[in-house]
Design a protein around this nucleic acid. Structure first.
Lengths: 221, 221
DNA sequence: GCTAATCTACCGACCGTCTGGTCGGCAGCC
DNA sequence: GGCTGCCGACCAGACGGTCGGTAGATTAGC
């Protein structure tokens, strides 16, 4: 992306777009050092250009972060849309989402980590946008879980909002412990996660193992 | 907390220990702005003291962070120890841990958030220590899950390591979405989380609902 | 086909501000 | 008279960002 408006002025193929180079370098460095601790100088060094030259491509440090987020937004919402238009049952949708979203995190470690960890360094309107999108995302997952309940595949007492938080939390953090040189490929881990998530949502019907009744001091039903 | 070693040199009651004031202020500010983006000046302002005066209590910014972590370490390992010495079954232990660890996060939002988010700004030996502790923690949870399997209460195919990551991830992030002014008290949310976790680990025995057999392309058993 | 104007990508010196951290000194309590 | 707690001036360096300038490619005019 970021190449949408012009089809590569330097006639495709050979040498890479500097604009993209800057973005990729920034993703790596912001991820490794953290946005606040990373300097524009670091990014410039990584691209192989003087600091001043960077400002030919960006407006400000925050602008650089915001552009990274734009790309991530596009990718994540495309994924979400694809799932909703596939005509799946609620359970299948939940599983597909869990797997695909996990997979996106695993295949875009740095980008995903930023998306999750560094949004608070945006300000003003951009911050509000991110918070809104985050909220929409949570609501969409909660809706998925409610759909599963409506299909009779989940405990009716399950709190969809908390379950959604739980699921998103677990997936969002994937990027912080996953090692690319680990034993299992991303596809495997994504499937394990999807299984655990679906298992968590779809269980407990008819289980009701004996446990202290102390949990009945709930406030809301 | 953090008052364990000395019972308040200024004779209890009246005015608070400055040492602790500094720590508490730092926790709040490092949490709100992020360690790297927060300045020592911010902390000094919050305590109501000039920046130079802060260095009467701390050695360096990183030292301040490290001291916060020491307190968190004590608390979290005390909690873990208490659970292991209560003579519970494996399932009860898993539930107790899930609930208590969630509760600790909810009741120590800022501290917990730092513990989880800002450890990478430590360096040298201190960083290694944190990484080691983190690893121990993950291993302990994985052991708990294996114990549940040994008791025959969990799917033998469940990958204990990934399940441990999954559980710890979700709980660690509690502090980032929980609002103190939300509708439910921490105790309720902790119990909901514990239920979800126990449900996930203990399910699927005899469930095996029909799903695409495509998940049998696992690599490891 | 040659020249002139324009544009892109980049340089490198520079700015003001803020950073973490130091230090000599002083007031007041034990 | 010494110790604790704190002040406030100070430092060197790093920070994000600016700016005038220029080499080289691209385009336009003739």
């Amino acid at each position: 992306m970021a190449t949408e408006t012009r089809p590569a002025s330097t006639a495709g193929g050979g040498r890479r777009n500097r604009q993209d180079e800057v973005l990729l370098a920034a993703i790596e460095i912001f991820h490794r050092k953290g946005y606040a601790a990373a300097s524009i100088q670091d990014v410039a060094d990584s691209v192989g250009v003087l600091k001043g030259s960077l400002y030919h491509y960006i407006d400000s440090k925050e602008d650089l972060l915001a552009r990274i987020f734009e790309g991530s937004d596009e990718q994540s919402f495309a994924m979400m849309g694809a799932i909703e238009n596939r005509g799946l049952t609620a359970v299948e949708r939940l599983e597909a989402f869990s797997r695909d979203w996990s997979l996106w995190h695993l295949n875009n470690l740095e980008r995903a980590s930023l998306y999750f960890n560094e949004w608070r360094h945006l300000t003003g309107e951009r911050l509000e946008q991110v918070l809104q999108k985050r909220h929409d995302y949570e609501a969409a997952v909660a809706r998925m879980i409610n759909d599963v309940k409506a299909e009779g595949q989940a405990d009716p007492d399950l709190d969809a909002r908390y379950a959604a938080f739980y699921i998103l939390s677990a997936i969002n953090v994937l990027s912080s412990w996953y090692r690319r040189d680990g034993p299992d490929p991303p596809e495997h881990i994504a499937q394990v996660y999807a299984d655990m998530i679906v298992g968590m949502v779809c269980n407990s019907r008819g289980r009701k193992k004996p446990r202290k009744a102390s949990r009945k001091k709930k406030t809301a039903a």
